[in-house]
C-alpha cells in the first residue's frame, strides 16, 4: 500500500511549523497510524533526519496519550476511535493523509505532534475527586447505587482525557471533559456532598487555563472516542447554577 503523508513539523513551542511531505510505500493496510509513523521514523533516522516526535503508549485506545488530527478529523476518521485504533485500511491506496497536532490555546505544541495537555490535570486537581482519605471508607455494600445510576456514572467516567473534545471545538472549550467528571461524581451518593465546591472550582480553573466557552454545537460528542454524551455538559451547567 502507498500513501502520501503530510505531517506537521514544528521544532519547539515557539518555532514556526509547517507540513512536510513524505511518500510512503510498502505499507500494510492493517498497520495502525502510530505504526505507520514508526515505519516512517525508522527511514528518517537512517537517512540522518530528525524523526517525527509523537506520543503513543497503550496503542489500544485507553491511555489517552496519542491523538492527532487526521485529514481534519480529530483523533480518527473512524467513529469513536482513537488515533492508535485507526488503521491504514481507513484510507485509499495512494491517498494523501494530513497529520497535525490537536490545536488549542490551552494545549501548546511541544514538538511536531506532541502537545502539552497538563491543563486537564489542573482542572481535576481543583475538585475532580471525592475527598476520601485512605482508610476512611465504609463497607462497600452500605452505599447502594442503582444499576442504571452505576451504568450512567460509568459512561461519564469512561473519559480517557485525550482532549479530542477540546481540539474539535471551535472555542476550544473543555466543557465535555470537565462536565463528564462533574457528572460522574455528582450522580453518585458519595460524591454529592462536595458537588457545589467541585463545580465552582473546576469551572473557574477551566476558564483560567484558557479554554473557551461552550456554545453547545455538539462537535465534541461526535469525536469522543468513548462516546461521552453531551448531556454531561447539561449536568455541569445545572450543577453550576444550583451552586
Amino acid at each position: 500500500m502507498k500513501l502520501i503523508i503530510q505531517v506537521w513539523r514544528q521544532e519547539s513551542r515557539d518555532a514556526k511549523g509547517k507540513f512536510e511531505k513524505y511518500n510512503l510505500e510498502g505499507l500494510d493496510e492493517n498497520m495502525s497510524v502510530p505504526e505507520m509513523l514508526d515505519f516512517l521514523n525508522e527511514k528518517l533516522i537512517k537517512r540522518g533526519e530528525d524523526p517525527i516526535a509523537f506520543e503513543s503508549d497503550c496503542r489500544e485506545g485507553i491511555c489517552g496519550q496519542c491523538g492527532f488530527v487526521i485529514n481534519g478529523h480529530v483523533q480518527s476518521p473512524e467513529k469513536q476511535a482513537t488515533t492508535c485504533q485507526t488503521h491504514l485500511r481507513s484510507f485509499k491506496d495512494g491517498e494523501e493523509v494530513f497529520l497535525e497536532p490537536f490545536r488549542a490555546t490551552a494545549f501548546p505544541i511541544k514538538k511536531d505532534l506532541c502537545i502539552d495537555r497538563t491543563a486537564l490535570d489542573r482542572i481535576i486537581a481543583k475538585g475532580g475527586y471525592i475527598g476520601v482519605n485512605t482508610g476512611q471508607a465504609p463497607e462497600a455494600n452500605s452505599i447502594l447505587i442503582g444499576h442504571d445510576t452505576a451504568e450512567s456514572a460509568f459512561d461519564a467516567a469512561a473519559c480517557i482525557g485525550c482532549g479530542a473534545c477540546v481540539a474539535v471545538c471551535k472555542n476550544a472549550s473543555a466543557a465535555l471533559f470537565t462536565g463528564a467528571k462533574i457528572s460522574h461524581l455528582s450522580m453518585l451518593p458519595q460524591g454529592k456532598l462536595e458537588a457545589k465546591t467541585r463545580v465552582q472550582k473546576m469551572v473557574a480553573q477551566m476558564d483560567a487555563e484558557g479554554f473557551g466557552s461552550c456554545t453547545f454545537t455538539g462537535a465534541c460528542e461526535k469525536v469522543c472516542p468513548q462516546g461521552i454524551s453531551l448531556a454531561n455538559i447539561v449536568t455541569m451547567n445545572r450543577e453550576f447554577w444550583k451552586s
Partner: peptide, 8 residues
C-alpha cells in the same frame, strides 16, 4: 476504598 472514591 474504591467505592468510596466513586469507582463505578
Amino acid at each position: 476504598q474504591a467505592v468510596a472514591q466513586g469507582v463505578p
